[in-house]
C-alpha cells in the first residue's frame, strides 16, 4: 500500500491505496464521488474526465498514486457558493445533455478548452472536445452549450463581475 494525499474538490484526502488503483476508482469507490462516471475503460470516451491541477485528464488513465500531491476537481466541485458554473448552466439551458452520462466529462473538458481558448470557433470546440464521446450523438447542442458559456464567461470577465 502507498500513502497518497490530494485535494479533491477542495477537501484534503489522505489514504493508503494499492498502486494499481485508478484515480477514477479512488474518486468513486473510496471517496464516494460518483459524479465521475466510467464509460469505456479504454481511454477513449472521456466520461471520467476530471481536472488535475486545473488540466483535463482521463481519470481511468491515471493511477491514484500518480495524483499524489495534486488538486483534483470533479463535476461535484465545479459549482462555487451554490451557484452553477456557467458551463453547467449553459448545458442545462441549451439541452446539452440527453442521457447525461458523458456530461461531467464534457463539461470538465470544456472548462479546460475555455481556459486555453476563451473564444473558440465551432470547429475549435469540436476539435477541443475530441477526447469526449456522446453516445447519444447530441453534439450539436453540446457545441451550442459551450459557445453560450464562452460568451457568458467573456462578458462577465470584461464587465469585471465574477471571473
Amino acid at each position: 500500500m502507498v500513502a497518497v494525499t490530494m485535494m479533491v474538490d477542495g477537501v484534503a484526502c489522505s489514504d493508503e491505496v494499492e498502486p494499481r488503483l485508478l484515480l477514477a476508482h479512488y474518486l468513486r469507490d473510496r471517496l464516494g464521488r460518483v459524479g465521475t462516471p466510467i464509460g469505456c475503460d479504454t481511454t477513449n470516451c472521456g466520461a471520467c474526465t476530471v481536472l488535475l491541477d486545473g488540466e483535463s485528464v482521463k481519470s481511468c488513465s491515471v493511477l491514484a498514486v500518480q495524483a499524489h500531491g495534486a488538486a483534483i476537481t470533479t463535476i461535484q466541485g465545479l459549482a462555487g457558493d451554490g451557484a452553477w458554473h456557467p458551463l453547467q448552466r449553459a448545458f442545462h439551458d441549451n439541452h446539452g445533455l440527453q442521457c447525461g452520462y458523458c456530461t461531467p466529462g464534457m463539461i470538465l473538458a470544456a472548462v479546460d478548452l475555455l481556459r486555453r481558448n476563451p473564444d473558440p470557433t465551432e470547429e475549435e470546440i469540436r476539435i477541443g472536445l475530441e477526447g469526449n464521446l456522446c453516445r447519444c450523438t447530441g453534439y450539436v447542442n453540446i457545441v451550442r452549450s459551450v459557445r453560450a458559456a464562452a460568451l457568458e464567461m467573456r462578458e462577465s470577465a470584461t464587465s469585471g463581475v465574477g471571473r
Binding site: 481511454t43 472521456g46 488540466e55 483535463s56 485528464v57 488513465s61 473538458a109 478548452l113 477541443g128 475530441e130
Partner: peptide
C-alpha cells in the same frame, strides 16, 4: 496525438 486529456499526461 490523441486528444487534449491524453496530451496532458
Amino acid at each position: 496525438v490523441a486528444d487534449p486529456q491524453v496530451r496532458h499526461r
